[in-house]
Write a protein that binds this DNA or RNA. Structure first.
Lengths: 205, 186
DNA sequence: ATATTACTTTGAAAAGC
DNA sequence: GCTTTAAAAAGTAATAT
């Protein structure tokens, strides 16, 4: 019917008008996170696809824009945790996560689970840890993940524990609290992952 | 042979029915000891049975949802108790209201640890939702039977969305086959 | 530092906003 | 979409001891 057609045009126009706002939000959040321009471009492409596929109905523009940025960071291999993303968004973590899963599923993004090693360089530099510690942390993650220890565990907590363990092994000790703060996880999580990883690595303390 | 299918345990059954009679929930809330009714929050009155343990949501239309029972027999038993309670209050209840099972939640154990990362890729990223940052389980939507399976690193699983008792059994056999075909079953 | 308690996910129905 | 009900899985978080 003509009316339905007109309505489609109307919503499409509205979507196009809001596109500018969405992209400016992606830009603002990306700047706050300090991610490269390539990530903003990928996020923009995903948002346009979501708009074309009519995935924005019933959700906030800000929520979809944030979810697209989260997905883009992961696609570009420089993941930000939902906590970090939520810090620069006005949408709460839970909603960002839900929207991301929806967009990811509907657009068939086929995102692979985040590799904890992707967090090692950034977290380590924030803690002023050497390259040796980073290599050791990567080794711990690689080895223990192969043993199946990673299943079901949060990538940030897993990376945090490996960094904590590596800092001890390399005599550049950081406290659990220091590592927990940069990774935005609790000390309890670091403790739990640390124990498992140390045991799986056959290290005694 | 004891296989994963033998480890299946029904954890919750959701069913709906109706007494074929409109109800005054305000009055019912006063007459039924232990009834919770907060129309501002939710239009249904909540009534819990002790044995078998279940919770019923009773609506003004006379339709009832029963949840929390551990078997289909328990659903019938719990609803039977509620029908009798209503009859005691002189509320006319159909002789044998039709009870429809809407969802069965079951748990099972595959008996082996699972590498969820490998499984997510092996089962096909398009059919899988695995976001350990948000939830430790891998969500797998199966078409036949039409159920959703939550798989955990321990090998324990949850099957939900099915309406028949044997849906869980069929689903477990199917998922075991698929995981085994990928060489990911211990 | 450990022990509770609570929240995350899946599915379905009900009436109404 | 949301509201309420129940239950399992296992990880994480907040709070208590």
């Amino acid at each position: 019917r003509l009316r339905k057609w007109q309505e489609r045009i109307r919503t499409k126009d509205a979507g196009e008008r809001n596109l500018q706002f969405a992209l400016s939000e992606v830009d603002r959040m990306a700047s706050a996170l300090g991610v490269p321009r390539s990530v903003r471009e990928v996020a923009s492409v995903i948002y346009r696809r979501a708009l074309d596929e009519d995935l924005i109905r019933g959700r906030s523009i800000e929520g979809v824009a944030t979810a697209c940025l989260y997905a883009a960071c992961r696609k570009e291999g420089i993941p930000r945790s939902l906590e970090e993303i939520a810090e620069v968004s006005r949408v709460e973590r839970k909603e960002i996560g839900r929207t991301y899963r929806y967009v990811s599923q509907e657009l068939g993004l086929e995102m692979r689970p985040v590799d904890p090693k992707k967090y090692v360089p950034r977290f380590s530099s924030e803690l002023d840890l050497s390259k040796e510690v980073q290599s050791k942390a990567n080794e711990i993650i690689e080895t223990t993940a192969e043993q199946g220890l990673l299943s079901g565990k949060s990538p940030t907590g897993y990376a945090a524990a490996a960094i904590y363990a590596a800092s001890l092994l390399c005599n550049e000790k950081k406290t659990q609290r220091e590592v927990a703060d940069v990774a935005q996880v609790t000390e309890v999580t670091i403790r739990n992952r640390y124990q498992e990883q140390i045991e799986a690595m056959g290290i005694h303390t | 042979m004891s296989g994963p299918a033998d480890s299946i345990e029904i954890q919750n059954v959701v069913a709906s029915t109706g007494i074929g009679q409109e109800l005054d929930l305000e009055a019912l809330a006063d007459d039924l000891p232990g009834a919770d009714f907060n129309p501002d929050n939710f239009p249904g009155l909540v009534y819990r049975t002790q044995d078998p343990k279940a919770a019923a949501l009773i609506f003004r239309s006379g339709k009832i949802v029963c949840t929390g029972a551990k078997s289909i027999d328990d659903v019938h038993e719990a609803l039977g108790i509620i029908f009798d309670k209503l009859r005691e209050l002189k509320i006319p209840v159909d002789d044998e209201p039709e009870i429809t099972v809407q969802n069965i939640v079951s748990s099972a154990d595959l008996g082996h640890n699972l590498n969820l990362n490998a499984l997510a890729i092996g089962l096909g990223l398009e059919d899988v939702e695995y976001e350990p940052e948000q939830f430790p389980g891998l969500v797998y939507r199966m078409d036949e039977p039409k159920v959703v399976i939550l798989l955990f690193g321990s090998g324990k699983i949850v099957i939900t969305g099915g309406k028949r008792t044997d849906d869980a059994e069929t689903a477990v056999e199917e998922i075991v086959e698929r995981i085994d075909a990928l060489g990911l079953l211990g």
